[in-house]
Simulated assay, not measured.
Amino acid sequence: MEHMQIRMAMIDDLDAITSVEADCFPPAEAATKEEFARRIKAYGTHFWLLCEKGYEGEKLIAFVDGMVTDKKDLTDEMYENAELHDEGGAWQMIFGVSTLPAYRRNGYAEKLIRYVINDARAQDRTGIVLTCKESLIHYYEKFGFQKEGISESVHGGVTWYQMRLTF
């Protein structure tokens, strides 16, 4: 992983981010290019990219993004309304953990999640909240996230489970 770099998203990354998202989620669940543009503008410092450095430049292989808020639970409105971001908020939300399929099972998402956890701790957040599908509950539990039950989210017509890591 020495040729990997974690950095914050910039608007120039929009096409790459949208492409990775489309490779990771079905259309009903994937964020749009316009939504990502609003997210980067509203909270680019909470939009972490894992890039592979090579001879031909940089390739985005994974990212994690999410706003900060004082609201305790992740809601569907947060996905759609980046302006709800509150830099002084207690909770770091995670809207997505996206890794290109060809790069999965190499520890890249784990590296990125641990980086996000460290950032949120360093920023004195109360903790991190995310939602995931049932099959990923055990994955997030290894980072210390606790399952809180089925989320109110109906995003993409899927059942989501809310997970919380409290510092």
Rank of each mutant, 00 (worst) to 15 (best):
M1Y: 05
E2R: 14
L14M: 06
A16P: 02
I17A: 09
E21P: 11
D23Y: 07
C24A: 07
F25Q: 01
P26C: 04
A28Q: 13
A30K: 08
E34Y: 01
E34A: 15
F36A: 05
F36L: 03
R38L: 14
I40Q: 13
K41M: 11
Y43D: 04
T45R: 12
H46S: 12
K53C: 10
E56F: 13
G57R: 05
L60D: 10
V64E: 11
V64P: 00
D65Q: 14
T69H: 06
T69K: 06
T69M: 07
E77C: 02
M78T: 07
Y79W: 08
N81Y: 09
A82N: 02
E83L: 09
L84R: 08
H85C: 04
E87I: 12
W91D: 01
I94P: 01
F95S: 12
S98I: 01
L100A: 07
Y103C: 12
R105C: 03
R105V: 00
R105P: 00
N106T: 00
G107I: 05
G107S: 05
A109L: 04
A109Y: 06
K111N: 02
K111F: 01
R114W: 05
R114H: 11
Y115A: 10
V116H: 11
R121G: 01
A122K: 10
A122D: 07
A122M: 05
D124F: 01
T126E: 12
T126W: 00
T126V: 05
V129N: 12
T131V: 15
C132H: 12
E134Q: 15
H138M: 04
Y140H: 10
Y140F: 15
G144H: 09
F145V: 05
F145G: 04
Q146M: 08
Q146A: 10
K147G: 03
E152F: 01
S153F: 03
V154R: 12
Y161H: 15
M163A: 09
L165P: 12
